Measured scan of single mutants.
Amino acid sequence: DLSALRVEEVQNVINAMQKILECPICLELIKEPVSTKCDHIFCKFCMLKLLNQKKGPSQCPLCKNDITKRSLQESTRFSQLVEELLKIICAFQLDTGLEYANSYNFAKKENNSPEHLKDEVSIIQSMGYRNRAKRLLQSEPENPSLQETSLSVQLSNLGTVRTLRTKQRIQPQRTSVYIELGSDSSEDTVNKATYCSVGDQELLQITPQGTRDEISLDSAKKAACEFSETDVTNTEHHQPSNNDLNTTEKRAAERHPEKYQGSSVSNLHVEPCGTNTHASSLQHENSSLLLTKDRMNVEKAEF
Results as ranks from 00 to 15, higher is better:
Leu2His: 09
Ala4Cys: 03
Ala4Phe: 10
Leu5Asp: 08
Arg6Ile: 04
Glu8Ile: 12
Glu8Phe: 06
Glu8Ala: 09
Glu9Tyr: 01
Val10Cys: 04
Asn12Glu: 05
Asn12Gly: 05
Asn15Phe: 15
Ala16Asp: 10
Met17Gln: 01
Gln18Ala: 03
Gln18Val: 08
Gln18Met: 03
Gln18Pro: 01
Lys19Ala: 01
Glu22Cys: 02
Glu22Gln: 02
Glu22Tyr: 01
Cys26Arg: 00
Cys26Tyr: 00
Cys26Ala: 00
Cys26Phe: 00
Glu28Phe: 01
Leu29Cys: 02
Leu29Val: 05
Ile30Glu: 00
Lys31Ile: 05
Lys31Ser: 07
Glu32Gly: 02
Glu32Asp: 08
Pro33Thr: 08
Val34Lys: 00
Val34Leu: 04
Thr36Phe: 01
Thr36Gln: 01
Lys37Asn: 14
Lys37His: 11
Lys37Val: 15
Lys37Ala: 13
Cys38Pro: 00
Cys38Glu: 01
Asp39Thr: 10
His40Glu: 00
His40Ile: 00
His40Met: 00
Phe42Val: 02
Cys43Asn: 00
Cys43Ser: 01
Lys44Asn: 04
Phe45Met: 15
Met47Val: 05
Leu48Phe: 14
Leu48Tyr: 08
Leu48His: 07
Lys49Asn: 01
Lys49Val: 04
Lys49Ala: 03
Leu50Glu: 03
Leu50Gly: 01
Leu51Pro: 02
Gln53His: 01
Gln53Glu: 05
Gln53Ile: 12
Lys55Thr: 12
Lys55Pro: 06
Pro57Ile: 04
Pro57Tyr: 01
Pro57Phe: 07
Gln59Thr: 02
Gln59Ser: 06
Pro61Leu: 00
Leu62Ile: 00
Leu62Asp: 02
Leu62Lys: 04
Cys63Tyr: 00
Cys63Leu: 00
Cys63Ile: 00
Lys64Trp: 00
Lys64Ile: 00
Ile67Tyr: 02
Thr68Pro: 05
Thr68Ile: 03
Lys69Ser: 10
Arg70Ile: 13
Arg70Gly: 13
Arg70Ala: 15
Ser71Arg: 01
Ser71Lys: 01
Glu74Arg: 12
Ser75Ile: 15
Thr76Asp: 03
Thr76Leu: 10
Thr76Pro: 15
Phe78Asp: 14
Ser79Arg: 05
Ser79Trp: 01
Gln80Asp: 08
Leu81Phe: 05
Val82Gly: 10
Glu83Thr: 01
Leu85Ile: 11
Lys87Arg: 10
Lys87Pro: 04
Lys87Asn: 14
Lys87Ser: 10
Ile88Phe: 11
Ile89Ala: 05
Ile89Asn: 10
Ile89Pro: 02
Cys90Leu: 10
Gln93Val: 02
Gln93Ala: 04
Leu94Tyr: 01
Asp95Glu: 00
Gly97Ser: 03
Leu98Glu: 09
Glu99Thr: 02
Glu99Gly: 02
Tyr100Pro: 09
Tyr104Thr: 12
Asn105Cys: 04
Asn105Thr: 07
Ala107Lys: 12
Lys108Thr: 00
Lys109Gly: 13
Ser113Asp: 14
Pro114Thr: 06
Pro114Gly: 09
His116Tyr: 14
His116Asn: 10
Lys118Gln: 05
Asp119Arg: 04
Val121Thr: 05
Ser122Val: 15
Ser122Asn: 04
Ile123Tyr: 08
Ile123His: 15
Ile123Val: 02
Ile124Ser: 10
Ile124Asn: 10
Gln125Met: 03
Gln125Asp: 13
Gln125Arg: 11
Gln125Leu: 02
Gln125Pro: 09
Ser126Asn: 13
Met127Arg: 02
Gly128Asn: 05
Gly128Val: 03
Arg130Glu: 10
Arg130His: 13
Asn131Asp: 13
Ala133Asn: 10
Ala133Arg: 08
Lys134Pro: 06
Lys134Ile: 06
Lys134Ala: 15
Arg135Asn: 08
Arg135Cys: 08
Leu136Asn: 04
Leu137Tyr: 08
Ser139Tyr: 08
Ser139Asp: 10
Glu140Tyr: 09
Glu140Arg: 10
Pro141Thr: 12
Pro141Ser: 13
Glu142Met: 11
Glu142Pro: 12
Pro144Cys: 08
Ser145Gln: 08
Ser145Arg: 10
Ser145Met: 04
Leu146His: 08
Gln147Asn: 14
Gln147Leu: 12
Gln147Gly: 15
Gln147Phe: 04
Glu148Leu: 06
Glu148Ile: 05
Glu148Asn: 13
Glu148Trp: 02
Thr149Ile: 04
Ser150Ala: 09
Ser150Val: 06
Ser150Tyr: 06
Leu151Glu: 15
Ser152Cys: 09
Ser152Phe: 04
Gln154Glu: 10
Gln154Val: 05
Gln154Lys: 12
Leu155Tyr: 00
Leu155Cys: 10
Ser156Thr: 10
Ser156Cys: 06
Asn157Lys: 11
Asn157Thr: 06
Leu158Asp: 07
Gly159Ser: 14
Gly159Gln: 06
Thr160Pro: 08
Thr160Asp: 12
Thr160Ser: 15
Val161Leu: 11
Val161Cys: 06
Arg162Val: 01
Thr163Phe: 05
Thr163Met: 01
Thr163Asp: 04
Leu164His: 02
Arg165Val: 06
Pro172His: 08
Gly182Ile: 07
Ser183Phe: 04
Ser183Pro: 02
Asp188Pro: 00
Asp188His: 04
Thr189Ser: 07
Asn191Phe: 02
Lys192Gln: 03
Thr194Tyr: 03
Thr194Asn: 13
Tyr195Leu: 13
Ser197Arg: 06
Val198Met: 03
Gly199Gln: 08
Asp200Leu: 04
Asp200Phe: 04
Glu202Val: 01
Glu202His: 14
Leu203Tyr: 11
Gln205Val: 06
Gln205Arg: 14
Gln205His: 09
Thr207Asp: 15
Gln209Ala: 10
Gln209Arg: 10
Gly210Phe: 03
Thr211Phe: 03
Asp213Phe: 10
Glu214Gly: 08
Glu214Val: 06
Leu217Thr: 06
Asp218Cys: 04
Asp218Ala: 10
Ser219Val: 14
Ser219Tyr: 11
Lys221Met: 09
Lys221Asn: 14
Lys222Thr: 02
Lys222Glu: 11
Ala223Val: 09
Ala224Gly: 14
Cys225Tyr: 15
Glu226Val: 13
Phe227Val: 15
Phe227Ser: 13
Ser228Phe: 02
Ser228Asn: 13
Ser228Pro: 11
Val232Asn: 07
Val232Ser: 12
Val232Gly: 13
Thr233Gly: 11
Thr233Gln: 13
Asn234His: 02
Thr235Asn: 08
His238Tyr: 08
Gln239His: 05
Leu245Asn: 02
Asn246Leu: 06
Thr247Trp: 15
Thr247Lys: 12
Thr247Ile: 05
Thr248Cys: 11
Thr248Ile: 03
Thr248Phe: 11
Glu249Gly: 13
Lys250Tyr: 14
Lys250Ile: 02
Ala252Phe: 07
Ala253Val: 14
Glu254Tyr: 07
Glu254Ala: 12
Arg255Val: 13
His256Pro: 12
Pro257Cys: 14
Lys259Val: 10
Tyr260Val: 12
Gln261Tyr: 07
Gln261Met: 06
Gln261Cys: 06
Gly262Met: 06
Gly262Val: 05
Ser263Ala: 07
Ser264Tyr: 10
Val265Lys: 09
Val265Glu: 09
Ser266His: 02
Asn267Ser: 15
Asn267Arg: 11
Asn267Phe: 08
Leu268Tyr: 01
His269Ile: 03
His269Cys: 04
Glu271Ala: 03
Glu271Ser: 09
Pro272Met: 12
Cys273Leu: 13
Cys273Gly: 07
Gly274Phe: 04
Gly274Pro: 05
Thr275Tyr: 01
Asn276Gln: 13
Thr277Cys: 10
His278Asn: 11
Ala279Cys: 15
Ala279Lys: 12
Ser280Glu: 15
Leu282Arg: 03
His284Ile: 09
Glu285Lys: 12
Ser288Phe: 06
Thr292Ala: 08
Asp294Asn: 14
Met296His: 07
Asn297Lys: 05
Val298Ile: 13
Glu299His: 15
Lys300Ile: 10
Ala301Val: 14
